[in-house]
């Protein structure tokens, strides 16, 4: 039942995305121009550790920007109609899956553009990809949940950053450590602990979103 609902809602999201293609293109352009700003201001010459932290800063702001609208995108009357039909759990899970896919695509493209301009500092590609994927899933889930909180208040856009960044820091800190390890060529087995922490954090975020979202939902 829930699965069917999620599948249906996911399909709706994709259709909506296809209709508003400028939104996705906007995010891509945002990422590319930010990378270019970073490239111009550092002249493409950075230490590996700076490389990693700049990359995650770009990703962080890009996903904050992309996802802050995830609950105010549609016309509110249509929302009301669509969501009287489905359960809050279905809504939050489908949003998280959808946003995870969206930021996943964005992050891969960012990595491409970033390493073309700034040089490729990563020596263990698999570890970097692993942490990129896990980290993005975590960040996307967190911002989805935070944007559902902030969409209820009057000043939406600043609130996403204010509410999101402090609670995001544990995730970001682990991610940056992992990526530093991947830059230094540490093997996946050696960085295992951090990967587990990342996974655990993501699971905690999912659990909290699943349990708490119904309370946000009830109007």
């Amino acid at each position: 039942m829930l699965l069917k609902e999620i599948k249906y809602l996911l399909w709706q999201e994709l259709k909506l995305e296809n209709r508003q293609r400028f939104a996705f293109n906007g995010i891509l352009l945002y990422v590319i121009s930010t990378v270019y700003v970073v490239y111009i201001s550092t002249k493409g010459d950075t230490q590996p550790q700076t490389w990693v932290s700049l990359f995650w800063l770009i990703m962080l702001f890009a996903s904050a920007n992309a996802l802050q609208k995830s609950f105010v995108r549609e016309n509110s009357n249509r929302y009301l109609y669509l969501y009287t039909l489905s359960s809050p759990q279905g809504v939050i899970i489908s949003k998280i899956i959808y946003n995870g896919m969206l930021t996943g695509v964005v992050s891969l493209l960012t990595w491409l553009v970033y390493s073309v301009l700034m040089g490729d500092a990563v020596s263990n590609k698999w570890l970097f990809l692993c942490s990129l994927w896990l980290g993005n899933t975590g960040i996307a889930s967190l911002f989805t949940f935070i944007s559902s909180i902030s969409s209820k208040s009057s000043q939406n856009s600043t609130l996403v950053a204010v509410l999101g960044f402090p609670v995001l820091l544990p995730l970001l800190l682990t991610l940056i450590r992992l990526c530093n390890a991947s830059v230094m060529g540490v093997s996946v087995a050696d960085a295992q602990n951090y990967l587990y922490v990342l996974l655990a954090l993501t699971v905690i975020i999912w659990a909290m979103a699943y349990l708490l979202f119904p309370y946000l939902w009830r109007e």
Binding site: F145, I149, S153, P166, V167, M208, Y215, L216, R218
Partner: peptide, 11 residues
């Protein structure tokens, strides 16, 4: 009250 309670638990 409701929204801030949710954020409080999460934070």
């Amino acid at each position: 009250a409701r929204i801030s309670a949710v954020y409080n638990i999460f934070a």
